[in-house]
């Protein structure tokens, strides 16, 4: 299983010389299963570069298919959708899974993003590829091709955000972007979702100090991420979804602090990395 990061930033893309190393694009991760199937996690602006790389293969000829999992409908998780090249090639097919996003169904959410006031294509029906939208069941296994998927809704300010677990070919990955746990930490169901995975990609938007000032945002600090990793006994933790104001230097510091925090847990077997655009982790 190959996991590649295309966008690692939270809230809004943050271009500029200060973010060149980790990258300024918003959330998007691709997962290539051992069978060759493709799963895409979230569709922030990083999806544009993923799309460009996919067009060099079967997706460029209208022969590609993939599953897209959307954690929630905040802009930084869907704003790359209109700019994902493979959506515009007839013959490609996509199954999109998402939560109910408040009262609104997935299709309605994506359609509103494409509406004439906001985007010239006016409707995702005009994009060309075949798209099927499905609500994702929570806390139960769903079989998609050779993979077993499971989702759990984490608290995230006023709207929940889905965390996903993907298992295939004896390897496992959990993706938990945008998680704002209560003061007693992650609920047992979330820890169960992350349990023993080879790679946990976890929201680490803030330092603990910055998080304390912005609790209402419903996002994690690096300590929340590290504590989850330790409790769930994961093998590797990738910090993810950095605050838009954090420079590469600030993110270096987040990673260093994450490693020190792990040492406090005496969970020294866990490897901590900082997710960066272009980085591939092979499991």
């Amino acid at each position: 299983m190959d996991v590649t990061f295309w966008g690692v930033r939270g809230s809004i893309p943050s271009p500029g010389p200060g973010t060149v190393r980790y990258g300024g694009n918003t959330a998007c991760v691709s997962v290539r299963l051992p069978s060759g199937e493709l799963i895409i996690l979230d569709c922030g602006t990083g999806a544009r570069n993923l799309g460009i790389s996919l067009l060099a293969g079967p997706f460029g000829k209208g022969k590609g298919s993939a599953t897209l999992l959307l954690s929630h409908a905040h802009w930084d998780h869907i704003q790359g959708f209109p700019f994902f090249g493979p959506f515009y090639v007839p013959g490609n097919s996509f199954t999109v899974y998402g939560g109910r996003s408040g009262e609104r169904l997935l299709e309605d959410v994506l359609e509103r993003q494409m509406a004439a006031q906001f985007f010239p294509v006016q409707s995702f029906r005009n994009m060309g590829a075949r798209m099927e939208m499905r609500p994702m069941g929570e806390d139960r296994d769903v079989r998609v091709g050779s993979a077993t998927l499971r989702a759990h809704a984490n608290p995230h300010g006023p709207t929940p955000a889905l965390a996903f677990r993907i298992e295939a070919g004896g390897k496992s990955l959990a993706y938990a972007s945008d998680a704002g746990y209560g003061s007693d930490g992650p609920p047992q169901a979330a820890v169960d979702l992350y349990r023993g995975v080879d790679l946990l990609i976890h929201d680490s938007t803030f330092t603990p100090e910055d998080r304390a000032l912005r609790l209402e945002r419903g996002l994690s600090s690096l300590e929340d991420a590290v504590d989850c990793a330790a409790r769930a006994g994961v093998k590797k933790l990738a910090l993810f979804h950095y605050d838009q104001d954090y420079s590469d230097h600030d993110v270096d510091e987040l990673v260093a602090r994450g490693r020190r925090r792990l040492a406090e847990h005496a969970a020294t077997g866990i490897e901590v990395i900082g997710a960066a655009e272009g980085l591939t982790v092979s499991l």
């Binding site: 930033r9 943050s14 271009p15 500029g16 060149v20 990258g23 300024g24 602006t45 790359g80």
Partner: peptide, 18 residues
Amino acid sequence: VRGSLPVPGPRTERYGGN
């Protein structure tokens, strides 16, 4: 100064990606 969508990264560092 950018159209369509923001483009962070080393290729747009000088003119800007916003």
